[in-house]
Nucleic acid binder design. Structure first.
Lengths: 215, 215
DNA sequence: AAAAATCTGTTGTTATAACAACGAAAGGGT
DNA sequence: ACCCTTTCGTTGTTATAACAACAGATTTTT
């Protein structure tokens, strides 16, 4: 994925982006599957951009239960909230669910003074606002998907959004069963059970990560 | 509350704010207790700022169940996410929980071109980013508070944050019982029951909206 | 002050999700 | 091909939250 295709760099040329990257001390790092990228409680100043692979945002309670807040696909940004609130410890952990390459950028000077050596700061700040708004929207959606008291309701809420997003009743989900359960905050085995009931009831068909939503 | 004390207008003088308000076509509107301010599905372009009273952000599913995403106190902003993503229909409803006065502002031109007649746009854009980041953080917190499978766990997660925020083990919560239940996504009567068990167990004491968290 | 409306706490019943345990299936590595 | 690991689906039991119904308390209205 080209940097200029990313939401964060919208309106910028490849050349402009290059100067931005050096201006903001960008660093690239690679993570193996399962590795933690940023951990809960840490205080950070950089935003992260996934270049390849896939990351997941999650948190763990004291009993070891995991909740997944969302996934970060290539081209998407994470930790922007904490980078924009200096000193705020992270409430979540970001980890690689497959081998993942990440670009870190110090957006601090975008937030503070206007004395920018680099003329693209204004543009970047605007894009960052858009990115932040989209992230908020994703969190709202995740809340809506877990607002039903029943597992079936949660699944249908999530699947409906997937179908809408894909523009088709057939779509792939980015989670395996355990991750989907952690995203919807339910028990995996109970959810598997519910999925097969829904298939018996003719509401859905599924095979691995492909779901078909019927009428 | 003075406008210059609000996060959105940080760094601006009262005079600057006045010119901003007229520049951004700000309008003041009043709402009675219970009235809907912005409703789910509508497409909006303005952010809202609560000047007095209290608003609540919520959503309803098809069975009439209500989920509360958060409350908006005087000085705080709402709908900024939708104002920053033109064309995105609202996923939530904003309503007044008491008589409430709201200031609406069209931030559209802050997001688009640089040709600002008004020199405070840059500052406002930066503040808007901060506001948006804080809202994201609030949503993350609400997700954490509902991630426990048990009602007691959810209450303790929420109360712990309240105590931390208040800097004391004794604090007031901004919700009545039904609203608290809707915020934590649980049944009110079951939650009331759990609250009194927790009091019996010596974990908390409470009287109306004042909670005391014991050791 | 009385009446109405809302809010709160309690109880008992029922539905349902969590949990534990296991075998089957699917991947991954050598 | 094999083993080893992870993922997935199924079952039965148990814990717990939802739900319904109501009485007492509190607040608001007239």
């Amino acid at each position: 994925m080209k940097l200029s295709d990313m939401q964060l760099f919208r309106g910028l040329e490849e050349d402009d982006i290059s100067s931005l990257l050096s201006c903001l001390n960008s660093v690239k790092r690679n993570y193996k599957k399962g590795e933690v990228i940023l951990s809960e409680g840490s205080i950070i100043e950089n935003i992260g951009i996934v270049r390849s692979g896939m990351a997941m945002i999650s948190c763990n309670d004291i009993w070891g239960n995991t909740s997944i807040l969302g996934s970060v696909a290539p081209g998407s940004v994470f930790a922007e909230v904490y980078a924009c609130i200096p000193g705020q410890p992270m409430l979540v952990t970001v980890s690689a669910v497959e081998d993942t390459s990440v670009l870190f950028m110090d957006v601090g000077r975008v937030l503070t003074t206007c004395t920018n050596a680099c003329p693209f700061h204004t543009n970047l700040a605007r894009n960052l606002l858009t990115v932040c708004a989209h992230k908020s929207l994703q969190l709202s959606q995740r809340i809506l998907h877990t607002s039903s008291k029943s597992i079936r309701g949660r699944l249908m809420s999530y699947f409906s959004e997937c179908a809408k997003h894909a523009g088709s009743n057939s779509f792939l989900i980015p989670y395996n069963r355990q991750q989907l359960a952690d995203y919807l905050n339910v028990d995996r085995s109970t959810m598997c059970n519910e999925l097969s009931k829904m298939q018996k009831d003719g509401m859905i068909e599924y095979k691995k990560n492909r779901i078909l939503l019927k009428d």
